[in-house]
Design a protein around this nucleic acid. Structure first.
Lengths: 320, 320
DNA sequence: TTGTACGCGTTATCAA
DNA sequence: TTGATAACGCGTACAA
């Protein structure tokens, strides 16, 4: 591959002059600059990332580290992040699993956006201390260069449950959770419990799911065998709700007459299901854009309080 | 951040000895090595990616470049790639949009897996020529260090359509396509047309979709107004099929009695729809694993013919 | 077994 | 306006 040396040679100038021209430093004679750019073009020159990084300490990359590539939520958040980063000439790097820690430790990214409970705060804190800004979407840990940008899980579920309870349509309540180390699952459960308590309901059922359709389906199947069957079950995400409802329907239960449900995410399929499923929607693309904007502000040294988070909305549908 | 220099200093050895120890070069006294590793540990040392890359010409990263983060297909392929790369100590880098070309041009990755028609072959060919292996999942371009690993779109659709036609249940046929520059859409259409021709059917309707639910929905709505309505429409992917069928059902059409359909991808929702949708399934996780394995073999200089591609399967359901 | 010295490709400092 | 040179952090040939 051609280097700046080749470009300089071909243009008949020194390496430093070539560098000036290529980086738009103003003190280069237009004629010279033109010659250099032409040479670069001819040689199909691109600066070597690592060499530049070694010198400038800047990568132009922002990493997004997630716990898995599946799910409608991540796709939209990623798309929002991508759009904003691209408009500011930053590159988006998405990774998952063990690779994520490498990227952070080896400083292949200027900043990290983290939505992966497996990426433990204590392991990456030293890197944040040394100057890499990190925005967490899934926890509230604080520290130098550590920021949070979370949605109001608790408040939104509280609002939905309060309206449900006020409607007095149901007697007993259940909660179908996600993985027990999931920030979203924990917060949504907190909102659920608080709503029940505030309305004088002291009892509820708890079901362990895993945020997947299959997991919801399994819970639905064991649900049938249990003696206490709530007539309203709040599912901590839509995929669980879909699996859960399918299992019940397969056993002849009618929704919402026998059992009513609601979910979280406004996954588009909730609108197409029968019955359509009541859910809480966040504009994930916008969330991604906000997070990316915050990261860019931080990297440029602008103040950013990260207070502006996406507003959620309840979508009342046929399932309750 | 601490460098190898700090480690050497702390351990009381020279930089090179520290480097030997950290890279498991055998000629270091065990006692010395121990001291060095301890120092590295204490200082929370990690080698600087770019410095190492500059020297070794290896990044340990493999890039996957896709045209968007949405869709069930990509998530599974990515997960498969991730699993395999991780087990071979490679890092997965996923990117999209303009950033993708940067990663390739600046050589931030050792190899590229490409599923993005926007990433034009002629722009990246020079980098392949210079030694970066590229595996295309969405085209058949050839050249130095360029490989293909595609699924049998054409053959699978041909098989499905042949069985449909042989069943003699339908009189007229339509094809709901994806974006017209999509490799998958083109190949699937070719299989569709060939099956019709081989069975003496010379006429069919063509509808332009975009592989999204919304796109399928729109086609469904305009479909209603047209005078020629095929009684079987093959949809080039499941998301189109879902949108299309929802639009028809909303207008009172019965599936499959009035209009029968089938799709491609075995997107899990096809099984939950009413009616459930006949489709063609590829094991996308396995596909990802095979692609990643091929890439690793290529990078290690092992022969790999990339002939082993995932086998597809037809899932006959209620929609036709 | 350990240390010295060099170069990877780039940018930045300084002098011309 | 341009050029020589040092430095970024690392790995390694070679010398000791």
């Amino acid at each position: 591959m051609s280097t700046i040396k080749d470009v300089a040679l071909k243009a008949g100038v020194s390496i430093s002059t070539a560098s000036y021209a290529l980086n738009d430093v103003p003190n280069v004679h237009p004629k010279t600059k033109e010659r250099i750019l032409k040479a670069a073009q001819d040689l199909n020159y691109s600066p070597h990332f690592s060499a530049r990084h070694l010198k400038t300490k800047k990568t132009g990359n922002i990493g997004v580290f997630i716990y898995g590539f599946s799910g409608p939520v991540f796709s939209d958040i990623l798309e929002g992040i991508r759009q904003t980063l691209q408009s500011f000439k930053y590159n988006i790097v998405v990774s998952s699993g063990k690779a994520s820690e490498s990227f952070i430790r080896e400083k292949q990214v200027d900043g990290a956006i983290i939505f992966d409970a497996n990426l433990r705060t204590d392991l990456i804190r030293p890197i944040a201390d040394k100057g890499m800004p990190m925005i967490f979407l899934d926890r509230e840990d604080t520290g130098t260069n550590m920021y949070q940008h979370t949605i109001d899980n608790e408040g939104l579920v509280y609002r939905l449950m309060s309206e449900i309870i006020d409607s007095k349509k149901y007697q007993t309540y259940g909660f179908l959770s996600g993985p027990d180390d999931s920030y979203n699952a924990i917060k949504r459960y907190a909102g659920f419990v608080k709503a029940l308590n505030d309305h004088g309901i002291n009892d509820h059922q708890f079901y362990q799911g895993d945020f997947t359709i299959e997991g919801g389906h399994q819970v639905g199947q064991t649900f049938i065998a249990q003696k206490i069957k709530p007539d309203f079950v709040y599912c901590a995400n839509d995929e669980s709700a879909i699996g859960f409802s399918q299992a019940l329907k397969a056993e002849g239960y009618r929704l919402p007459e026998d059992i009513a449900i609601a979910g979280f995410d406004n996954f588009f399929m909730t609108n197409y299901m029968n019955p359509s499923i009541t859910t809480i929607g966040i504009d994930h693309i916008k969330w991604g854009q906000q997070v990316a904007t915050a990261m860019i502000d931080i990297l440029r040294g602008f103040p950013h309080d990260l207070k502006e988070t996406p507003v959620g909305k309840i979508y009342w549908r046929a399932s309750c």
